[in-house]
Amino acid sequence: MGYPRANPGIGLVPDLPREGPDFDSAGLLAWLEAATSAELDMLPFGVVAMAPDTTVQAYNRWESRASGLKPERVIGRRFFSAVATCMNNHLVAGRFLCGPEIDAVLDTVFTFRMIPRRVCLRMLKHPAAMRIYILIAARS
């Protein structure tokens, strides 16, 4: 069935090549807003796209492999309370409550499949964007 197609946000003009941006690219949010599910699945890092009320709308392949959770088990659930509770604290989830816009990077540890794994998180939120995003990359 695929994921719901993202709408390009007003004022966000994607200017990155569609082959795939980097984890820390400047225009990443706009790109994500316009990305198809297939495009998300191509990325070398995890993408969780949520509605503003934190229900999961997209859960890409990288993330699914890392966590062991199938997308269909996750989509529609509230992310911080019902999927990835490890992030349900002031370090991550709390930041989404602070203000209308965020683009922040955080070094932390996830417990994918109960094994602690170093990750780097990027949190993206913008008033013109339809969705809010958490990106997860492996950290050595």
Partner: peptide, 18 residues
């Protein structure tokens, strides 16, 4: 090994983000 709740509760205590 540690579960999600462990990360949730203990990461804020961690002095080195580990």
């Amino acid at each position: 090994m540690a579960n999600a709740e462990a990360a949730r509760l203990l990461m804020p205590l961690s002095p080195d983000a580990e």
